[in-house]
Design a protein around this nucleic acid. Structure first.
Length: 484
DNA sequence: TTTTGAGTTGTTCGA
DNA sequence: GTCGAACAACTCAAA
């Protein structure tokens, strides 16, 4: 057995959704052991059940792993890749290498925490040191509770308790030195995992938009703080402006810790001289991320089951034809279609448009929110079980702190308000790009001459609305009445 | 135990 | 065109 001489026995750092070297408590603690470090990533599709990474996530994962491997290589280290059951692989690797310990960053998805428990039991029984560290959240779920020690179900009091705790600890630096073992265990080759699409290669739009990896994440954060933070509270609602942070995929894969983001933005909060409402508003969004994880942790069925009772009676219409129209961006509502195509092309959708498209699926089409969540799961580069589940439940009115049932987004009005010139719609729905702004959000109202001028033939090269708004609104209100 | 105030993101209608 | 009220009733969290 290699490394049996005690000082040479390595520590395994098990990477998962923490693909960074800076502000990484598990890695830092491992380095402090003054032993060789084995950085490990395990691709374990079976453990995640229905929530194995979707297509867009796998694309991101490929490049993020590549970046992490390169960052480690720069320090003379390596990233060991293995595929299969994580518990089994790590248990075997510990034996094979004579490792003393396994350190990882704590996760909160039901499958992941079950895995961590299993591994902890297995390793501690055999005298190995298994430790989980924070790093993916600002506040551990156990540390935020009501006065009655219950989990919060309402955002505002949750956020008050968070803010009262403050984020005192500062971000950890990238370890100066990562000691290497005398012998490396075998590793898979990343390309062999085929995480990126080959035939057809649909990832062109993703490549144009994103730079996965820690360096790309840091650049994105800097650019956001410099150019968009001050006006964030208002401009974040405008899908025609690139005014949001676009940090969601970087945060999901842990290329950046929320603590790093917090400390970068907090000095601009309005509690400080010269601070802005924009920074306040953005920090609130970080707390929302915490709240989603808090809910998933305390209610592990959040991804599958409606949080509020009564929804088993809801008269869903599981219409495959309508679902496909929504997925492909062919509903006839320009803002909805623009959003769905932005998603398909870039792996991302502006937050306001996510609300509009999600509301359209659930309330206009009465298709179960789980179908929408599954589609987002497959197509979003930032697909995140906590955020995705909590947000779909919120839109559907069945989540904690749910939207009032009568809050049904009007896709026309939302377009007029937040994409007033139609810039966003024209960009993603090119077949109506030439239409006058007066009609860009409701082409069916355009006079024949305006349609002709823009080379639009409704029902041929752009669809008629799949459902009438006023009718759909009434129908949705009736449907929701059955749940009460 | 009871009471009280409040709850991310909206739309429509009528004045 | 603009503005305020109504849209239900319920649940949560703290006093």
């Amino acid at each position: 057995m290699p490394g049996t001489e005690d000082g040479n026995r390595p520590v395994i750092v098990w990477f998962a959704q923490d693909l960074r070297l800076a502000d990484h408590p598990a890695l830092t603690a491992a380095v402090q052991q003054e032993r060789p470090i084995i950085p490990l990533y395990v691709l374990d599709d079976e453990a995640s059940g229905p929530w194995a990474a979707g297509g867009a996530s796998r694309w991101w994962l490929h490049y993020s792993l590549q970046a992490l491997a390169a960052d480690l290589a720069q320090r003379g280290s390596r990233l060991i890749l293995r595929r299969g059951n994580a518990t089994t692989i790590i248990a075997e690797l510990v034996q094979e290498l004579g490792a003393t310990a396994v350190f990882c960053t704590r996760r909160y998805e039901p499958c992941a925490s079950a895995d961590e428990r299993k591994l902890k039991n297995h390793l501690s029984q055999r005298g190995f040191d298994f430790r989980r560290f924070g790093g993916s959240l600002l506040y551990e779920p156990e540390t935020v509770a009501t006065k009655d020690a219950q989990p919060f179900k309402v955002f505002t009091p949750f956020s008050k308790v968070c803010l009262a705790q403050r984020v005192t600890s500062s971000a950890l630096p990238t370890p100066a030195k990562i000691t290497t073992p005398s012998q490396w265990p075998a590793s898979d080759v990343l390309d062999d995992w085929v995480l990126t699409p080959r035939t057809p290669d649909w990832a062109g739009g993703l490549r144009e938009c994103w730079s996965p990896g820690e360096a790309g994440a840091t650049r994105r954060l800097d650019a956001f703080v410099e150019s968009s933070l001050d006006e964030y509270h208002t401009s974040r609602d405008r899908p025609d402006c690139a005014a949001t942070s676009s940090l969601s995929p970087h945060l999901h894969f842990g290329e950046l810790s929320p603590r790093q983001v917090w400390h970068r933005v907090a000095p601009f909060a309005s509690t400080f001289p010269g601070g802005t409402e924009g920074a306040d508003s953005f920090l609130r969004e970080l707390i929302w991320r915490e709240f989603s994880y808090h809910m998933l942790y305390h209610w592990p069925t959040l991804p599958e089951a409606p949080f509020r009772p009564g929804f088993e009676r809801f008269p869903w219409r599981d219409d495959e034809h309508m679902l496909a129209a929504w997925q492909l961006g062919r509903t006839g509502y320009p803002l909805v279609d623009a959003g769905m195509r932005q998603l398909w092309h870039t792996g991302w959708m502006h937050n306001r448009v996510r609300m509009v498209t999600a509301s359209f699926l659930v309330k206009h089409l009465l298709i179960p929110w789980q179908r929408g969540a599954a589609w987002f799961w497959d197509t979003l580069v930032d697909a995140d079980l906590a955020n995705n589940s909590a947000s779909w439940q919120w839109v559907s009115g069945c989540g904690v702190d749910a939207a009032p049932y009568f809050r049904i987004f009007n896709p026309i009005l939302q377009g007029l308000k937040f994409d007033p010139d139609g810039t966003y719609v024209r960009r993603w729905v090119p077949e109506i790009a030439l239409l006058k702004t007066d009609y860009i959000h409701q082409p069916w109202l355009a006079p024949t001459s305006a349609l002709e001028d823009a080379s639009i033939r409704l029902g041929e090269n752009y669809p008629e609305p799949v459902v009438d708004h006023a009718f759909a609104r009434r129908r949705a209100l009736e449907a929701f009445a059955t749940v009460r």
